[in-house]
């Protein structure tokens, strides 16, 4: 549905998007992840025909963003990271406004507005002024707006930004429902746990370059070797000397990538393992050899945040 090939976009000396290639199949929810200023919004704006690419190509439903802007606009719904609203309109008028802007026939507008209000659970707010809506409702209104002309593709830039946990869950359910309806979604977000639960594939972008694209499982597999374990030693009088001794034993093992002691938490050691399949028994053996006793042993599974942090090489630290 969306094909981006060697896309480059520059603003003066700054290369916002550099040789980016992504392919998103129809019906997918594609999570677009990257630190601030990585080029996510620029890529989305190119797909929404708001910016022209300097090099490369991008197509939506087989249509080029360079030449088929009018046809693409009919097929996409774009929700920017900061949604400006006409605060002199009511929710109903706001949606009617965009229904007319998308040239929906007059007879169709009422049922369509009713339907999207229903879908986004805003029917009760129909006559409320847009300016009076809470942040969560405003975001839902933004989603309602992009649905008004029934586009095939939704480009949602930070749709869950600034929402409370309940509103985030509601937004996630709404987007999942849209995916079930057959829409293709490209969603950028900083709340990576949300994307992990919702997306079928992700793309990680840093400084305009794509550093990973594929399924979430592929992302986990790529960083799998870097498993981390949190170990807490039993309290002892000689804990100050014990921790460096245990750390030295652990570091000596080839399967261990790094060991660090948490200065704020006495007796706590973080161990990062080398890539590959390892058991955990050797860690306990090394601790005992170093004279320590294990109070707690917590293997930390890899999540999307880990994958993101490792793949982006700490650029977001």
């Amino acid at each position: 549905m969306i094909q981006i090939s060697r896309l480059t976009k520059r603003f003066g000396d700054l290369t916002a998007v550099d040789n980016l290639s992504i392919s998103i199949e129809a019906g997918e929810i594609f999570g677009f992840i990257g630190p601030n200023g990585a080029g996510k919004s620029t890529t989305m704006k190119v797909l929404a025909c708001l910016l022209k690419p300097d090099q490369g190509a991008a197509t939506v439903d087989g249509l080029s963003v360079r030449t088929d802007g009018d046809a693409i606009r009919q097929r996409i719904g774009y929700m920017p990271d900061f949604i400006g609203y006409y605060d002199d309109l009511t929710v109903d008028e706001y949606l009617q406004f965009f229904a007319a802007a998308f040239r929906l026939p007059r007879k169709k507008r009422r049922p369509v507005v009713d339907a999207v209000l229903e879908l986004t659970d805003l029917t009760a707010k129909r006559d409320s002024m847009v300016a009076s809506l809470s942040r969560g409702m405003s975001q839902r209104l933004g989603v309602a707006r992009v649905l008004i002309h029934d586009p095939k593709v939704l480009l949602l830039d930070e749709p869950a930004s600034g929402l409370d946990p309940r509103a985030r869950i509601e937004m996630r359910e709404l987007l999942s429902e849209l995916a079930r309806m057959g829409k293709t979604l490209m969603v950028s977000s900083h709340i990576l746990s949300e994307l992990a639960e919702m997306c079928s594939s992700i793309g990680i972008i840093e400084r305009g370059r794509l550093i990973f694209a594929g399924s979430i499982d592929d992302a986990y597999a790529k960083v799998k070797g870097g498993e981390r374990v949190l170990i807490r030693l039993e309290a002892a009088d000689n804990l100050d000397r014990l921790v460096p001794s245990v750390a030295a034993r652990l570091t000596a093992d080839q399967r261990v990538a790094s060991v660090s002691a948490d200065p704020g938490k006495p007796g706590v050691i973080r161990v990062e393992l080398e890539p590959g399949e390892h058991g955990h028994h050797f860690l306990i053996e090394r601790i005992i050899q170093g004279g320590g006793r294990v109070a707690a042993f917590t293997p930390q599974g890899v999540n999307l945040e880990d994958a993101f942090l490792r793949l982006t090489k700490g650029a977001v630290q």
Partner: peptide, 25 residues
């Protein structure tokens, strides 16, 4: 209490939405 206008009866938007809104400013 809120002093801002929180709700009002919605009007019907015309076929030329930008003009419709502008002439109501």
């Amino acid at each position: 209490q809120s002093g801002a206008l929180r709700s009002r009866r919605s009007r019907r938007v015309g076929d030329l939405p930008v003009l419709w809104r502008e002439i109501r400013q």
